[in-house]
Every structure is written in C-alpha cells, then in structure tokens.
Design a protein around this nucleic acid. Structure first.
Lengths: 157, 157
DNA sequence: TATTGTTATACTCTATAACTATA
DNA sequence: TATAGTTATAGAGTATAACAATA
C-alpha cells in the first residue's frame, strides 16, 4: 500500500501517517472504514429525518410486520430498553404504529404505515445510490468478496 | 449473546434473520463486523487497563516520540478537545509523560515511559494473538485481501 | 491573527438495574 | 416464575464553542 516514504520526521508528517502501525491491526482498519461509511450514511438518512438506529428498526418493521420490540432488539443486537426511544421516534414521526396483540397483551405488534414504507423505500434507494459513489473504485466482484469476507468474522469464545 | 432456547418463532425459525435486507448494505455489515472486533479488542485491552482510545494514543506516542496532542487528534481522527482526558489517563497511569517544548511553549511533547513501552508491546502482542483466533477461518491471503479492500474505501465529497 | 491545550457542554449509543403488567 | 415493555441512570465516544497562553 501507500507508504508515504518521506524520511521526514514527525513534525511535518502528513495528516494520516502517524497511525501506520495501528493500521496493520484489522480491527482498527475495519473501524476506520466503518466510521467513514457510518458518517456518510448518517448524512443521507438525515435528509429523511432518520438516524441509523431508527432507519435500521424501520427496515426490520417494514420487512416483518407485527414484529415485537424484543425481536428488533435481538435482530439489531441492542438492548430491549434502548429500542423504546427508537420506536417512540418512529411512531411520533408517523412511520410505524404500535398495535395491541389480543393473544399476548404484554407486547406490541409493530407495523409500518404507508408513509413509513415510502420513507423506507426512498431511504434505501438513497443509501444504495450513495454507496455506489463510496464504492466506485471497487468492482462488483471486489464488493462481493469484501462482503463475503466480512460475514465470515464472528464472535469467538 | 447466547440464545439457548428455541423452536419457536414467528416468521422465521432463525434467530438472526430479521435484518436480512440490512445485511445487503455494506455499511451495515461493516459496522456489525466492526462491533464484533471492537468488543473483542476491548476485552483484551481491559486486562492492561487500557481502552481502545487510550491504547490507540499510546501506540502513536510510542511510535512517534515528541508527538503533540493536536497531531494525535489528527492521526486518530478525533477532536483536539477529546484527546485531553485520554492523554490525562495515560499520564496518570505512568505510561507517558508531557514534556515542555522550549521552541513552542504552547504544546507538549509526549513521550512514552519504559512502562508505557512495555504495556504497549504486551497489548499489541495480545491483540495479535486474539485476532489470530478471530480470523482463524480466513487464510493469510484472504486477510490481506480484506485489508486491501477496506483501505480503498475513502470519504467522498 | 492563528494555534495549542483546555474546560464546559451536549448529544448519541450503549449497558444495567429495577419497575409494571401481563403471561 | 418468567417475559415485554418501560423508566432511570450511567458510561463511553464524539462534537462544538469559548477561553488563556503563546506564537
């Protein structure tokens, strides 16, 4: 990769060179890339009044009508308690509704509204267009390879 | 993390399937992988009394003696103001020292102590060993490919 | 004027414990 | 007793504005 072979010492080092040894740690490099993509996606979603957390929950609800908050928490790997404000925000924005379940009055069946579906579709499309820009240097095959390699990394005991 | 129970589910039998359409978004998948690696690394670093932020700063200081806080902020892509508590923690742990610079009395020259160097070496080694476990399913070539693809993703205007 | 370190502040995400109402 | 949703709270990470000392 780029080694910025500059023989200069630190005071005039270019902006990004001081973390060279950290970049050889996969976790660090994945985090950096993740931050870039997250910041970019946040900017896109902001135009729809969504944050990454609310967008993610909205997609799950659209895809799985009558899903419960606990199931969303499990799917998105977050705590149940933290779904409350997220679902509140979606409900107050009129994008989803909480519906009572006759067979189990403890839980809500969450369903997207027509507006929620519309916003979701537009946001997904905008994200896809934007990701096309972010990934323009990578071929379709490279993108598939990247995705395939990423999902092979799992939590280990 | 463990979902022991079973057999019952609403729309799908699998536990983690509700976010299927999100997983096709690269940013989402990168973030998930990043979270897994970050949580794992945090556990390793905790044994050395370090967090990811303090570890990262410590490495930069060890690699670049007399670096300033502003340079660390730029290298790690964080705000100058947020380096203060991080450097404080490293200094109070005796891992680095703030030294005055005669030529510019506004800034500090940061240098690792012998103990700081020792901790850094041990932490880097422990992280590498642990990453070996996390990546045991990936060949050396696949790891190199993954890293190479990740660094080709950059912020776009 | 501009920059370095600093303080104060705030917002988001995340995590835990405890409560309620149901089951 | 066990679970779903909720509340309260706390810790990190991150971001901005403003200030004093120094350049």
């Amino acid at each position: 990769m780029v080694e910025a072979s500059k023989t200069q010492s630190k005071s005039t080092a270019e902006e990004g060179g001081l973390d060279a040894s950290l970049r050889s740690i996969l976790g660090y490099t994945v985090k950096r890339t993740s931050n870039i993509l997250q910041a970019d996606a946040a900017g896109v979603l902001d135009r729809f009044g969504l944050r990454i957390t609310t967008f993610s929950a909205l997609v799950v609800i659209c895809d799985h009508p009558d899903v419960t908050q606990s199931q969303i928490a499990a799917a998105l790997n977050m705590e149940r308690s933290n779904t409350v404000l997220i679902i509140d925000a979606l409900e107050q924005a009129g994008l989803i509704g909480r519906h009572r379940v006759p067979t189990d009055r403890r839980s809500y069946a969450l369903r997207a509204t027509l507006e929620g579906m519309k916003i979701r579709d537009a946001a997904v499309r905008a994200l896809a267009e934007r990701e096309e820009v972010m990934l323009h240097d990578l071929s379709q095959e490279e993108r598939a390879t990247l995705m395939a390699l990423l999902v092979r990394i799992r939590a280990q005991p």
